[in-house]
Amino acid sequence: MESVIRAVSVYIFLLILIRFSGRRTMGQMTSFDFILLLIISEAASTGLTGEDNSITNSIIVISTLILIDIIFSIFKSKWSVFDKAIDGVPTVLIYDGKIQKENIARSRTDLEDILDTARADKGLEKLEQIKYAILEKNGHISIIPYEQNVSA
């Protein structure tokens, strides 16, 4: 009984914590984010197992976590409100070449992040080449450039 309750509590707590910490922190990890994630996972594992180091406990904890994940994925596919609450929604950072300052500030990104992704993913050089930049639910920035007229 305890193992299931512990797994559900830690799952819900981490879900709330990560959701409200903002997707930028987990989506595009810096080296510090990575260290933070390691520390969190270490602390969470203590909470999950307690003093019970038996194989049975590990199996129950893992099964419970997977089951909650499946239940949540079913809820997300059934109710869009649930999906939005858990996974969030994409945010437009550049719309038709126009920089959406408020969205950029609120989502804690900056133009440098957008340019970084534009260079890495699309090989773009300047901000003017970007038609749309979207911060996706997973924290990745998608870049859609203006169509280039290539003359032979």
Binding site: M1, V4, I5, N57, I60, S63, T64, L67, I70
Partner: peptide
């Protein structure tokens, strides 16, 4: 498999694999 997983977790919750009612 999901059904089996649900039954297993419910069994664990009620104490089939340790403390519980």
């Amino acid at each position: 498999f999901w059904g089996i997983l649900l039954l297993f977790t419910l069994a664990a919750l009620f104490g089939v694999f340790g403390k519980g009612p």
